[in-house]
Design a protein around this nucleic acid. Structure first.
Length: 868
RNA sequence: GCGGGCGUGGUGGAAUGGUAGACACACCGGACUUAAAAUCCGGAGGGGGUAUCCCCGUGCGGGUUCGAGUCCCGCCGCCCGCACCA
């Protein structure tokens, strides 16, 4: 056996079979050990796994295997986010059914994931596109309707003209559909909504408790919820149409209430619409406003446009003070009340508008050191800044901070009944309706007589029909000849089914809960769910920082409100891993070239590339996220076939900190592969040595003791690094230990038996440290060392604390902060004793050059600093 | 514009305020080999000196400290998120 290269192609499938047969990673709900739930974000079944998946699942697997070794009852499941548009697109392109395409992809990807040797409990596998899953989602939708968490309302929606569907605000990026990239249009539709905005304060407050989440994600969610506090008041509208005599307004800057020179409403404000009815000019203007793009570029260049309605509004604090009312293109209907108070001196947008339409500018406050009024730039310093108020509701000339002025004015308005303090959120209700076939049907029936009523639970699931055609654009469910026809469950009359399906983010908002009882007849078994949840460690890409993670936090609260679980936060620990990147390559023609098609030559420091087949020179370009469009992708299957899964896993975990991007390089993979062989040789050598010697224990000599110490330190550090998800450091520790052990192996033959014993123990521990990362290699080595059972079942090695501490310590000696020497003393030696030793040293005396030190700083066991 | 993060050798990156550059990749030298691959041993931040050694060095400029990659202040550059949010 020794001398042969380790062959992952042969060993990896073998161990995967053994784990499978032993049901090594099946977790039981009635296991009395402490539960630990580790989960990676489940994949969309696109057809192939990519390197990002490999990185994600490698990390989760290390945690799962480590916690298992620590004696926890580990839940580490896998499922499929299986509804969604690509399946319908594929169905159209390939003349197949979305379900067929999706299920084939799941089978293919499952085989790929299995080839990675992940410690996953496949008995709990779920796919969101199966009625076994989505029927429970329908059931909970009905629960939520009954609990008043769902609403149906006419709403302006983002319409993706390419995908022919409604998009959530979160799915619109820079005014374009997040999938299609098409410029989004605005349409009015009746939609189903989850009333997430009712939960804004709770979702905001809950973030404070998520101490194991990245600060970045918490900040992003905080901003998304967008809490602000300000003043709500009503303008009186002189000459308004019936019902619009009062115009509610919200402002975050009550201190500027003496500075407004106009008021403005959004083009789609009810008042603007009412005015448009009798006025073609206004109608035309409103239409113009709606055509303005919402992309970032469009907004930056878009000119402020206004239309003077001729109406006057009256100031809440002074009925005689009149301001002109405009319709303006920069006022948003869906924030605040859709109406603003324009204070040009202290808001850039208002100033631009005022200059354009010749409106006056009133300075409310000025800097302390200047009497200059506002010219082309609005003056809006931070709220903590002290300024001089020259035109406000307090004492003229008062110097105070903006915040203080805001507070005082707000109090004054409330005291006089001119307005009231109001808290405002940016978060809007979650529109879940999608005009698409391949999603979870919304379990609702529309009856002309009884109205909109939920499908009775006994009639669930509402199953998607199989016989659909995608000949026509739009919703195939709606086009189906018979499916939507049904009798009303209440009156028995003719009615129709809801043909909208749910946003796929609903599917992914509770799948982690379903894993705890994937076969239950109810959505959850509350006792079981409550034991496993929240997820101890959730791992995935930062791209889900807002959408998926916020929705899940909401949905968990909704499930609590409807009695399905009793916790509020779904994910206790969250880790967002970085992307996998690769160099890009370009042919002289400007086309991207795949890494597999080029050959790189290195001469000295310069690398040149050429095309393998044509031989033409290739430009080595920037490092980018792996993407099909840039062709800089590496197929996990090919890597597994060439190097084995362990090598791919190891490389994904080494070098780069897991939260940062990692660059995939051929050289890096080669290095990982070499390390694998190095471990294998070490194990072979050790096994040979053990055959010859007996490894008897006895008093360790210095060499043996040094090995033991290195081993125990490594066990301790690697454990700590895995728990802190610092996989790159764990890897570095393992490299170091391996180097130590390889050297030790060379010293054994001519040495006392204790050295062999120390080596044997060290190699065994090394294999255990490697096991979470390269599990197949570890099992093979475990077997070669003659150990019984599986290393996957072996408990994490205990650390002898006595071996972690040295009895001597080497302290650097600094003179004036620069390192000049070192001294080795017994650990814990007192400062005075160290000082005496240091001053007696010849080299220190030479450095001092006859001068006596001003001061000697000694930090016991750490450092000596002699100040001259 | 607002918010968050980052800046260390040729490269990825280590470093509770305490020996900067662990570990790895790439590179160079040596051993083994007819040769190559593989492997093993060694070298290496920059500059200077035959050795022991000395000077400089964590984006830039200040500061705190016996001591700063780390803390504070002010810049510069890059990345990410949000954004006509009143």
């Amino acid at each position: 056996m020794s001398g042969e290269r380790y062959n992952p192609r042969e060993m990896e499938p073998r161990w995967q079979k053994v784990w499978d047969e032993n049901q090594s990673f099946v977790s039981r709900n009635d296991d009395p050990r402490e539960p630990y739930y580790v989960l990676e974000m489940f994949p969309y079944p696109s057809g192939r796994i990519h390197m990002g998946h490999v990185r994600n699942y490698a990390m989760g697997d290390v945690v799962a295997r480590y916690q298992r070794a620590r004696g926890k009852n580990v839940l580490h499941p896998m499922g499929w986010d299986a509804f969604g548009l690509p399946a319908e697109n594929a169905a159209i392109e390939r003349k197949t059914h979305p379900g067929t395409w999706t299920r084939q992809n799941i089978a293919a990807m499952k085989a790929q994931l299995k080839s990675m040797g992940l410690a996953i409990d496949w008995t709990r596998e779920i796919a969101t596109c199966e009625p076994e899953y989505y029927q429970h989602q329908q059931s909970m939708f009905i629960d939520m309707m009954e609990a008043g968490l769902v609403t149906r309302k006419q709403s302006k929606v983002n319409w993706d003209p390419v995908d022919m569907t409604v998009l959530a605000n979160e799915q619109v990026v820079d005014g374009r559909g997040w999938r299609s990239g098409a410029v989004v249009e605005q349409r009015e539709l009746t939609q189903w909504f989850f009333k997430i905005s009712d939960m804004a304060e709770e979702l905001l407050a809950g973030l404070d408790g998520l101490t194991e989440w990245p600060e970045k994600v918490r900040v992003m969610q905080r901003n998304w919820i967008g809490k602000s506090q300000g003043l709500a008041f009503d303008f009186g509208v002189n000459g308004a149409p019936q019902g619009f005599e009062r115009l509610p307004v919200y402002t975050t800057r009550p201190d500027t209430m003496r500075g407004p020179t106009f008021a403005a409403i959004a083009a789609d404000h009810p008042l603007a619409k009412a005015l448009a009815e009798g006025n073609a000019e206004i109608a035309a203007f409103n239409k113009l406003c709606q055509q303005t793009g919402t992309s970032a570029e469009a907004l930056e260049t878009a000119e402020k446009l206004g239309f003077d309605t001729g109406l006057k509004v009256t100031h809440p604090a002074d009925p005689n003070w009149e301001l002109p009312l405009f319709i303006a293109n920069f006022v948003l209907m869906d924030y605040g009340t859709g109406a603003i108070i324009g204070c040009p001196a202290h808001d850039q947008r208002d100033l631009d508008f005022a200059r354009k339409y010749g409106l006056p500018v009133i300075d409310v406050y000025k800097p302390l050191d200047s009497d200059e009024g506002v010219a082309d730039e609005a003056y809006s310093p931070p709220k903590t800044q002290t300024v001089r108020y020259v035109q406000w509701f307090g004492e003229t000339g008062a110097e105070l901070t903006v915040q203080e002025a805001m507070d005082q004015t707000l109090a004054l308005f409330e005291a006089n009944g001119w307005g009231r303090a109001q808290t405002q959120y940016r978060l809007r209700d979650w529109g879940v309706s999608r005009q698409r076939y391949w999603g979870c049907p919304i379990p609702v029936i529309h009856c002309e007589v009884c109205g909109t009523i939920p499908v009775p639970k006994k009639d669930l699931p509402v199953v998607l029909p199989e016989d659909v055609s995608f000949d026509k654009p739009g919703n195939a469910l709606d086009h189906h000849p018979t499916w939507k026809r049904i009798n009303c469950p209440q009156c028995g009359g003719a009615a129709r089914r809801e043909t909208d399906t749910m946003d796929t983010f609903v599917d992914s908002s509770w799948y982690y809960t379903r894993f705890t009882a994937p076969d239950a007849a109810t959505p959850t078994i509350p006792d079981v769910a409550n034991r496993w949840l929240p997820v101890d460690q959730y791992i995935g890409g930062v791209e889900h920082a807002i959408l998926h993670l916020l929705y899940s936090r909401y949905f968990t609260r909704a499930m609590k409100a409807t009695g399905h679980v009793s916790h509020e936060e779904p994910f206790k620990g969250l880790f967002t891993q970085g992307m996998v990147t690769h160099e890009t390559y370009k042919a002289p023609t400007g086309e991207w070239v795949a890494p597999a098609d080029i050959l790189i030559e290195t001469t000295g420091d310069t690398r040149t590339a050429r095309h393998i087949q044509s031989g033409q020179p290739i430009t080595i370009g920037s490092i980018e996220k792996m993407s099909k469009s840039k062709k800089n992708v590496v197929d996990p299957d090919e890597i597994v076939a060439t190097y084995g899964a362990d090598t791919a896993r190891w490389f994904m975990l080494s070098d780069s900190p897991p939260e940062r991007d990692v660059q995939w390089t051929e050289a890096g993979v080669e290095g990982a592969s070499r390390f694998q062989q190095r471990v294998w040789r070490l194990v072979g050598e050790t096994a040979e040595l053990l055959k010859q010697g007996d490894g008897a224990s006895g008093t360790d000599d210095a060499e043996a003791l040094a090995v033991r110490k290195a081993v125990h330190r490594a066990v301790h550090n690697v454990g700590a690094d895995i728990e802190g998800l610092r996989f790159n450091r764990a890897v570095a520790q393992i490299y170091e230990l391996t180097n130590t052990l390889v050297r030790a192996a060379g010293l054994v033959s001519a040495a006392p038996a204790q050295r062999l014993a120390a080596l044997a123990e060290g190699v065994e521990r090394l294999i255990q440290l490697i096991a979470p990362m390269m599990p197949h290699l570890a099992e093979t080595c475990w077997e070669a060392l003659g150990k019984s059972g599986l290393v996957a079942d072996a408990p994490w090695p205990a650390v002898d604390a006595a071996l972690l501490v040295d009895d001597t310590v080497t302290m650097p000696i600094q003179v004036n902060g620069k390192r000049r020497g070192e001294i080795t003393v017994s650990k814990g030696m007192e400062a005075k004793a160290v000082e005496a030793l240091v001053l007696s040293m010849d080299e220190i005396a030479r450095m001092l050059d006859g001068k006596s030190p001003k001061k000697i700083v000694i930090v016991p066991d750490r450092i000596v600093n002699v100040v001259v």
